[in-house]
Amino acid sequence: MISFDNVTKRYPNGYDALSQVTFSLDKGEMAFLTGHSGAGKSTLLKLLMLMERPSNGRVLVGDQDLASLANSQIPYHRRRVGVVFQNHQLLFDRSVFDNIVLPLRICGFDPSDAARRARAALDKVGLLSKEKLNPVVLSGGEQQRVGIARAIVHKPQFLLADEPTGNLDPKLSEEVMRLFQQFNQVGTTVLIASHDLGLIARMPHRVITLNQGRLVSDGK
């Protein structure tokens, strides 16, 4: 499903965020990506999102070599991916519902179909009763769940999460992780970048470890 083949990312200032990283993630697998800050977790996710391109090596998603995608095809690639951000990236000028329906609007869903799917996603994260609220009045945990609902509303092939429990207390963190497990159980490939080692240890999933841009362990 996801495959990194000898991938190096060197920034223009000469800094190697990733060097010669090779690993692969099977379809339907769930894995954690861990390492200290600066280890290259975010860069790896950015490469998967095509927010950055590798300096060397190949990144494959599905059977697609991301290097073969022109810039104009990036949006269509991103529609296959659901992303949960650490800082939620919600829009505070609209309701929870309108935040979640955004990816569906962009994909061109019929409005009534989109509304049905958005409500289903909200229901999944247990926030159906708050669809009309502005996300600004929600707690951190609830905002994160809105972010998750938005990431899965269009049923992406794989789900990326960048420190999804970064600002949450342990109980909420576990709830969020359980949500990811649920999506994984219905077939979605999930990759979660996190440095919450205690939480990761309690979960029966593969752990990919990076250190200063190098792969230390691919957890297999």
């Binding site: 019929d110 179909d113 049905r116 229901d123 992406p156």
Partner: peptide, 29 residues
Amino acid sequence: NLRRKGAVRVEPNTKRDARVHRGAEHHRL
């Protein structure tokens, strides 16, 4: 009850299904 309703909503509606071809994990318009 809500949860059940939610689950029902996710079910593809047959009328649209003729036009929306939905795979197990993704869908195309």
